[in-house]
């Protein structure tokens, strides 16, 4: 999961202070692993360096968390590209996918497209595996089956999420 893209995405809805960003991240995505200030700081300085964010203002007191950041046009493009790129189908993708969906909802992008896109990518992978399985020996078949079942589970999750997008939007955008 890309923290940089996530923080960028969070900034898209408006300029925020560093501590604001941390709180928003923890609230929405960091259920089991809250961000350290250090992570926020290093990430933001990288983004600053790359011209994806700019400093909008500084509160008295100093420190990175006191800085107010705003996203640049280049930053918005970067977020867009990231969201539109399907993840390589692999196990334990959910957290990234979930982040993408929530961010899409937060930024009023079409979350359904993200899911469908991912879905098509999954199925493409499954086709390749199915094809390999048909041509391969028993060992290949078993290995492919393992991957196929996982992919299928992901795909089901995608389907289910697609069906529940409206509900998710209500919860996320409040």
């Amino acid at each position: 999961m890309s923290i940089g893209h996530t923080l960028l995405g969070l900034l898209e809805s408006g300029p925020r202070h560093g501590y604001d960003l941390k709180r928003a991240f923890d609230e929405k995505f960091g259920h089991d692993r809250p961000l350290h200030y250090g992570q926020v700081y290093s990430t933001m300085s990288r983004l600053l360096k790359n011209g994806l964010v700019e400093v909008d203002g500084i509160e008295p007191g100093g420190g990175p968390e006191r800085k107010r950041y705003a996203i640049t046009d280049a930053g918005i493009t970067d977020v867009q590209r990231w969201l539109a790129t399907p993840e390589k189908p692999e196990p334990y993708l959910q957290s990234t996918l979930y982040t993408k969906v929530v961010l899409a909802l937060l930024t009023h992008r079409n979350a359904g497209d993200i899911l469908d896109n991912q879905r098509a990518e999954h199925l493409r992978m499954m086709r390749i595996l199915t094809d390999r399985k048909r041509k391969g020996d028993l060992a290949d078949q078993l290995i492919c089956d393992h991957a196929l079942f996982h992919l299928e589970a992901d795909l089901r999750w995608l389907e289910l999420t697609a069906a529940r997008l409206d509900k998710l939007a209500e919860v996320v955008v409040k």
Binding site: L123, R127, L129, T130, L148, A162
Partner: peptide, 15 residues
């Protein structure tokens, strides 16, 4: 079933 659909060349989703 996705695993059945994986036998296809192309996929259409109806919603």
């Amino acid at each position: 079933e996705a695993r059945v659909a994986a036998y296809s060349d192309r996929e259409i989703v109806v919603r």
